[in-house]
Amino acid sequence: MNKTFIKNSGLALSGGIMIALMVTVNGVLAARLGNWVALVIIHLIGLITAAAVLIFKKSLKDITGGVPVKYMMGGILGVFTILLNNMCVNNIGVSMTLGLALVGQIIASAAAEHLGLLGMVKKKITLRKAPAYLIMTAGAAIMIIWS
């Protein structure tokens, strides 16, 4: 295991820590301002941060560059992700919100790949992967039932 791998692994762990902190502070904001106002502020601050980086890098020209509208759906769907996270985190906690979100994300990804949705290359759900889905679903069920 080389130094670069260890350094980047540490960064990946830091990324996970940052996600948990982000969900927590967004939840605090939603508790203070209400879900709807918090939603606007979170996006506004994200946009200001992205704009600041673009200004710093002097690459403000031609931002959209004829990007098809469908590729902006990520931002649209992200609104609902943040809204649902904010609604959940103040009721069921950070670990359960993130754990259940991951299980939902993996099952949705598997279904999308299985059916070849959104232009994805078709990848069938296989027997080899079935135990993983069962274990994760069991984990999600235990989180819900035993909390």
């Binding site: 980086v53 673009l54 902006m72 931002g75 649209i76």
Partner: peptide, 15 residues
């Protein structure tokens, strides 16, 4: 960076 900007802008337009 531009992708992130478009992403947040699209989100804000809906939010």
């Amino acid at each position: 960076n531009k992708g992130a900007f478009i992403n947040y802008a699209a989100g804000l337009v809906l939010a």
